[in-house]
Simulated assay, not measured.
Amino acid sequence: MSSLTLLCLPYSGASAMVYSRWRRKLPAWLNVRPVELPGRGARLAEPLHTDLAALARQLAAEQRLTANQPYAVLGHSLGALLAFELVHELQALGCRPPVALFACGTAAPSRREEYDGARLREAKSDAELMDELRTLQGTPEEVLANEELMSLMLPILRADFLLCGHYAYRQRPALCCPLHVFGGEDDRASEEQLLAWRAETQGDFSLEVFPGGHFFIHEHEDRVLGVLSAALEPLRLTA
């Protein structure tokens, strides 16, 4: 049976382990590989990045062996932007393209200015970060009230917001892999901003909008995983 590796990149403030439960829920032929970023999880001792292009280059060097076998890449929010840059960096290293790129929960790279504007360019205070977490509705109040957890999480979130805020879109030849975009009905990214991802590939393109807000990938996990595996199953047979 042909198998595929799925590299999964986390959203702001998160460890890649937010994808760990997917290993139990996706088919056995799909090898879910959460990609941990420096400064969190098992890489807690490493310095946090605030330069997304540099981080993408580092991750590409780390994942280039994985890219010798059939693989796909998925990211949510910050992770989608990083997934896009990672695929470009792997291509620059001469690696094979992924069988598909899944960009979830954010505007296209070319539309970052209107999506984020100046909102994330300056480092935010702890209070501002807490307000942002409440707005995104992805963090339970009991977690927000836990000072020890917040002392670990807020520096990561601050750096991750700067990764987005300092991001500079670069015009490059379009990718050749299929690009599937997932959005939430009540999320901040507009349909136009999501459809703008289409310009980033010469391959097939699709947009799927799910119920829910920014964290629709968790709110409607089974539905998201169903669409994901349906998109990948025919590709694993031809990879």
Results as ranks from 00 to 15, higher is better:
Leu101Ser: 02
Leu86Lys: 07
Leu81Met: 11
Ala107Ile: 15
Gly75Asn: 07
Leu78Gly: 04
Leu82Arg: 04
Ser77Thr: 08
Leu74Asp: 01
His76Met: 11
Ala100Pro: 04
Ala83Pro: 05
Pro70Trp: 12
Leu93Asn: 06
Ala80Glu: 08
Pro109Asn: 01
Ser110Ile: 14
Gly105Leu: 14
Glu89Thr: 05
Ala103Pro: 01
Arg111Tyr: 07
Phe102Lys: 00
His88Ala: 01
Pro97Gly: 03
Pro98Asp: 00
Ala108Ser: 12
Gly79Leu: 11
Asn68Thr: 11
Pro70Tyr: 13
Gly79Lys: 09
Pro109His: 01
His88Ser: 02
Thr106Ile: 14
Cys104Pro: 04
Pro97Lys: 05
Ala103Lys: 01
Pro98Tyr: 00
Arg96Gln: 14
Arg96Thr: 11
Leu78Ala: 08
Leu82Ala: 02
Gly79Phe: 13
Leu81Tyr: 03
Gln69Ile: 00
Arg96Ser: 15
Glu85His: 00
Pro97Ala: 05
Arg111Asp: 05
Leu93Val: 09
Asn68Gly: 10
Leu101Glu: 01
Leu93Glu: 07
Ala92Arg: 13
Ser77Cys: 14
Val73Lys: 06
Phe84Glu: 04
Leu78Ile: 02
Leu81Pro: 03
Gly75Arg: 05
Leu81Phe: 03
Gly79Arg: 10
Glu113Thr: 15
Ser110Asn: 15
Ala108His: 12
Glu113Cys: 04
Glu89Asp: 10
Pro70Leu: 09
Leu86Cys: 09
Asn68Arg: 14
Leu74Arg: 02
Phe102Tyr: 03
His76Ser: 13
Phe84Gly: 03
Gly79Thr: 14
Arg96Cys: 10
Val99Cys: 13
Gly105Asp: 14
Leu90Thr: 14
Arg96Asp: 11
Gly75Lys: 07
Cys95Asn: 13
Leu81Gly: 02
Gly79Glu: 09
Pro70Ile: 08
Arg112Ile: 06
Pro109Arg: 00
Ser110Phe: 09
Ser77Phe: 10
Ser77Gly: 12
Gln91Lys: 14
Arg111Trp: 10
Val99Leu: 12
Val73Ala: 08
Gln91Trp: 07
Val73Ile: 15
Ala103Gln: 01
Leu86Pro: 08
Glu85Ala: 00
Pro109Gln: 00
Glu113Ile: 12
Ala103Gly: 04
Gln91Met: 07
Leu82Tyr: 03
His76Lys: 08
His88Arg: 07
Ser110Cys: 15
Leu86Phe: 08
Ser77Asn: 09
Leu93Ile: 11
Arg112Ser: 09
His88Met: 03
His76Leu: 12
Leu101Asp: 00
Ala72Cys: 03
Ala107Asn: 13
Tyr71His: 15
